[in-house]
């Protein structure tokens, strides 16, 4: 083996070790939460902390699902309802935002005209502090009695994810060759049929990606839920925050279990579309 070859191999080996070490340490917080979720109460606060639970238990998960008759029963019942709430609100608003987004982005991508104002008003507000936008929304929602309701939260989520929906889908739609559209026009399809029968099947994967991306956004949302619906619709993020503040953050085991449960769906969705995450978060500024 030549000298330079050796050097190359050593460097390559070091790169591997370094990268694996970095990955491991970056995943440490997750690992810690996962381990804590299986620890029994006396292990939560022992010092030095145990890295691997000595007596693994699923009691934390049982607590999260069924609540407990113990001293926390008053403040905490079960995560099942919030879980279903989150799923319902996230799925409904995602579907609506996708339908609206599909129509809007088709119009923008297909006709090119008259959309620049729409695009601008979609992107600009992203720079505005969301807190300030929530206040007029709150006043508006009080007028139409949408505070603390499912449909109120759903509407807010639609508005919050629609920019992503429109811009991501527009990016995918811009990739549809115009010949397909023209062939479809000759075949007698109306604009609605062209969208439904030609474009949507062609951008099927993009549609899927956008849907999952919106689901992640909705699932992880906290601020809107906190300010606009916390007394009516408890989402999973609110439950975690509530559990946290009620026990001053000392209820480590259940917190971890709930954290894991709250994160699992988004991690699954995220891994599915991991190649497109950057595309979504940059509003399509980054090419796929």
């Amino acid at each position: 083996m030549s000298d330079s070859m050796m050097k190359y191999n050593v460097r390559k080996g070091l790169a591997h070790i370094f990268l694996y070490a970095v990955t491991a340490s970056l995943l440490f917080p997750l690992f810690w939460m996962l381990m804590t979720s299986f620890k029994s109460p006396n292990e939560w606060v022992t010092y030095p902390p145990t890295w691997i639970p000595t007596e693994p238990t699923i009691s934390n998960y049982r607590f999260i699902f069924f609540g407990s008759a113990g001293r926390f029963a008053r403040t905490y019942s079960s995560a099942v309802i919030p879980y279903l709430n989150t799923a319902f609100v996230a799925v409904t608003s995602t579907l609506v935002a996708i339908v609206i987004g599909v129509l809007g982005s088709y119009s923008l991508s297909r006709f090119k005209t008259g959309g620049s104002l729409t695009l601008l008003s979609i992107i600009m507000p992203r720079m505005f502090p969301p807190m300030a936008m929530i206040i007029p929304l709150m006043i508006f929602f009080q007028l139409i009695r949408a505070i603390d309701t499912y449909w109120g939260l759903i509407i807010v989520y639609i508005g919050f994810t629609l920019p992503y929906s429109v811009l991501m889908l527009k990016g995918f739609m811009d990739g549809v060759p115009k010949e397909f559209t023209e062939a479809a026009m000759l075949d007698g399809l109306s604009e609605w049929q062209i969208l439904y029968k030609i474009w949507l099947p062609i951008i099927k994967n993009g549609l899927m990606t956008t849907t999952l991306f919106l689901l992640i956004l909705n699932w992880t949302e906290y601020t809107f839920a906190l300010t606009l619906s916390s007394r009516g619709v408890e989402t999973i993020t609110l439950t975690l925050a509530k559990l946290f503040s009620n026990e001053a953050g000392t209820y480590y085991g259940p917190q971890s279990a709930l954290g894991i449960l709250a994160a699992i769906p988004t991690i699954i969705f995220g891994i599915f579309i991991h190649k497109h995450l950057a595309y979504g978060f940059t509003f399509g500024a980054l090419k796929r």
């Binding site: 060759p177 010949e179 397909f180 023209e182 062939a183 479809a184 000759l186 030609i198 099947p201 062609i202 099927k204």
Partner: peptide
Amino acid sequence: VAMVFQYYALYPH
């Protein structure tokens, strides 16, 4: 009228 496109534009799906 009917047309054959340059790259055929057969609906891929």
